[in-house]
C-alpha cells in the first residue's frame, strides 16, 4: 500500500513537472518545475529499491545543478532593463515560437511512435519473476565501484576535475586587452 502511494505521488510529481517544463513560458518557473520532476524521479528510485541512487539524485541535482541553473538564468536575463534590479525578473522568456513548437511536436510524435513500438511488447519478451524484497544497496555499490568498475570510477573523477577547471576557466571574466585581442 505504501509502495503504491509513494509510487503514484512520485510519478505524478515527475510527469507533472516534466510537462510543466514544456508548457511554462517563464524560464525561472520551468527550472522550479524541473526541480519537482527531479525530486519525483528520486522518489521513483526509492520504489525501485535504489536508496543510494535516490540520495545521490537529491544531493547532486537539488544541491548543485538546479542552483547553478538558477544562477545562470539570473545572470543572463539582464538584456531588457524593465525592473528594479539589473537582473530582470519578468523578461526571462524561453524564446520559443509557434514554428518551433510545431516542429518539436512532430519530432516527438515520430520518436514517440517508434519508441512505443519498441516497448509495446515488453511483457512478452521479458520474464518477470517474483520481485526481491527491498534491501539496502550502499555496501554493494561501494564494493562494485572499487572492484569491477574501478576504471570508470577513476575516469569519472578525472572528468569531474576537468569539468571543474574548465568551467572556472571558461566563465572567468577576461581582462580588457584579452577581449580585444
Amino acid at each position: 500500500m505504501f509502495d503504491n502511494f509513494i509510487f503514484l505521488s512520485s510519478a505524478a510529481l515527475a510527469i507533472g513537472g516534466a510537462l510543466s517544463v514544456v508548457v511554462s513560458t517563464n524560464l525561472m518557473h520551468s527550472c522550479i518545475y524541473l526541480l519537482m520532476s527531479l525530486i519525483g524521479v528520486s522518489g521513483l528510485y526509492v520504489t525501485l529499491s535504489a536508496d543510494f541512487l535516490a540520495a545521490t539524485q537529491l544531493v547532486v541535482y537539488v544541491g548543485g545543478v538546479v542552483i547553478l541553473m538558477l544562477f545562470a538564468i539570473m545572470l543572463t536575463a539582464g538584456s531588457d532593463n524593465k525592473t528594479v534590479n539589473r537582473f530582470g525578473i519578468v523578461k526571462i522568456p524561453p524564446m520559443g515560437n509557434l514554428k518551433t513548437y510545431i516542429m518539436s511536436l512532430l519530432t516527438a510524435g515520430v520518436m514517440g511512435c517508434s519508441v512505443l513500438k519498441m516497448i509495446m511488447n515488453i511483457n512478452q519478451t521479458t520474464k518477470l519473476g517474483e520481485l526481491p524484497p527491498y534491501s539496502t544497496t550502499v555496501e554493494q555499490i561501494g564494493t562494485l565501484l572499487v572492484t569491477d568498475h574501478v576504471l570508470a570510477f577513476e575516469i569519472s573523477s578525472v572528468l569531474l576535475l576537468g569539468a571543474l577547471v574548465g568551467a572556472a576557466v571558461i566563465a572567468r571574466p577576461r581582462l580588457e586587452n584579452e577581449v580585444t585581442k
Binding site: 526541480l35 536508496d51 543510494f52 540520495a55 545521490t56 539524485q57 537529491l58 544531493v59 537539488v62 544541491g63 548543485g64 538546479v66 542552483i67 538558477l70 539496502t136 550502499v138
Partner: peptide, 15 residues
C-alpha cells in the same frame, strides 16, 4: 543512507 539523505534534503534550504 541517513547522513547522505540529510545532506541532500537540507540543500533545499539553499534553493
Amino acid at each position: 543512507i541517513g547522513v547522505f539523505y540529510l545532506l541532500g534534503v537540507s540543500s533545499l534550504v539553499g534553493v
